[in-house]
Design a protein around this nucleic acid. Structure first.
Length: 412
DNA sequence: CCTCCACCGGAAAGCCGGGTCA
DNA sequence: TGACCCGGCTTTCCGGTGGAGG
């Protein structure tokens, strides 16, 4: 009998190397980031002259090339450092994974071959280890804190201690590069830490459609077999992503998924049609993800809108209608209904998430209200609620709610 | 031009589960 | 262990408002 994986072992007709399209792949060329690369290199070049580079704060939305740029520049710097034998070492830390002061410190200590367990020691002891580690040889240490906002959300001691470590060192110097896609966290910082972290700032603006086209173009040669892409594929991917928010990551994702769609349909080429299918598929997944993680009450409200949609020819409903139906649904589910004010707030949240539309209109004598309508296909939401139901194994009341939510049975 | 509907959305306080500290 | 704090969620209170109808 033929092995069931037989089909999957044959060479791909579409992809040459799919990894090139993954977000963590660092290309040799970063289009449209020359300015940022130069600023970063200028600042860090101090390390090669034996001086201390300023601390740097890097800001930009997701998929604007922050991490790629920093990794690219630090690789170059390390190479040059070895050639010129000026000692400098870079330590890359992702704040999402190392999200407490202790973990960050332990990780840094390990970079200096100190045997620090990932849990257990008093923090100041680890701090001491780092200090002696860094100070061991005369050199320059640059700590890169990616997603630094995640780290700060649990307290700013880590940043505070790192930024003042220089005053306790004799031989070496330490600089910090903080990377974030969120500016609000700066307010949580001690003013001294804030100003020391942002001695220099580099901004990464979103890409436009043309720039995204260049980025995709840069990678297709390695990623795809020659001439499997139709001419319109790249511009279309770029346009879709630019429309969203100029996010290179999602542009690359879209291109990859388009290829996968083409591959699965046994096509020899990736066409415009495949991109559209891929885009639809990704959008659907996004919706499912969002709906699944919604709090129960928001799900009930969403469900209310769907029920209204099913029961009426019209597609728009006033806040009052939605709230009344919501109350009925709640009493049917034997769940305490929220106040009108609260439901109004949750409706706003659903609006921001893009699941429903809620625009304020005035009907003159007949009051002012929001017109609420579903802004995504009915089936994809329903699909998500059903999917959630299957996974839900919590308390019986919750389970009952979920079952009722996907059942759509009449209750009056 | 004024009224008044039916709701919006800010402010503030209450509640609750979880974590911390002495 | 109990006092206390914190953050998220919710309620209560209430001032605000665009425009059809008078």
């Amino acid at each position: 009998m033929e092995n069931m994986f037989q089909d999957f072992t044959t060479e791909s007709a579409i992809f040459e190397n799919k990894e090139v399209l993954r977000p963590n792949y660092i290309p040799e060329n970063l289009p449209h980031r020359a300015k940022q690369i130069k600023s970063l290199a200028d600042i860090l070049s101090a390390a090669l002259k034996g001086e201390t580079p300023s601390n740097i704060f890097i800001y930009g939305k997701t998929g604007t090339g922050k991490t790629a740029t920093v990794k690219y520049v630090s690789k170059e710097l390390e190479e040059m450092g070895e050639k010129t034998s000026s000692k400098c070492s870079l330590i890359y830390i992702n704040g999402e994974i190392f999200d407490t002061q202790y973990r960050v410190f332990a990780y840094i200590a390990r970079a200096f071959n100190k045997h620090v367990p990932m849990v257990g020691w008093p923090t100041d002891m680890v701090y001491l280890e780092i200090k002696t580690g860094i100070d061991g040889g005369k050199k320059c240490v640059i700590v890169i804190l990616d997603e630094v906002d995640k780290l700060v959300s649990k307290g700013d001691e880590a940043l505070y201690n790192l930024s003042r470590i220089n005053s306790e060192l004799n031989n070496s110097r330490l600089s910090i590069i903080g990377i974030s896609n969120d500016l609000t966290f700066m307010e949580l910082l001690d003013p001294r830490v804030r100003s020391s972290l942002s001695e220099e700032e580099i901004i990464f603006p979103p890409y436009n459609a043309n720039q995204l086209k260049d980025i995709l173009g840069e990678r297709v040669e390695k990623a795809f077999n020659s001439s499997v892409l139709d001419g319109e594929v790249i511009p279309l991917c770029a346009a879709f992503a630019a429309q969203e928010n100029g996010d290179a990551r999602s542009a690359l994702d879209l291109l990859r998924v388009s290829g996968e769609v083409a591959e699965r349909s046994k096509s020899k080429k990736v066409t415009e049609e495949h991109v559209r299918l891929a885009s639809e598929k990704m959008e659907k997944n996004r919706i499912i993800e969002v709906v699944k993680t919604l709090p129960v009450q928001s799900k009930i409200i969403l469900n209310t809108v769907i029920r209204l949609n099913k029961a009426n020819a019209k597609r728009r409903f006033s806040s009052g209608e939605v709230y009344n139906t919501y109350r009925k649904l709640c009493s049917h589910l034997k769940i305490e209904a929220l106040s009108q004010r609260r439901v109004s707030a949750l409706v706003s949240e659903l609006d921001i998430l893009g699941l429903i539309n809620a625009a304020i209109i005035s009907k003159g004598r007949y009051g002012r209200t929001r017109e609420i309508s579903l802004s995504v296909p009915e089936e994809s939401v329903q699909h998500a609620l059903v999917g959630y139901c299957e996974l839900e194994t919590l308390s019986t009341i919750k389970l009952k709610t979920q079952v009722a939510l996907c059942g759509y049975e009449k209750w009056e």
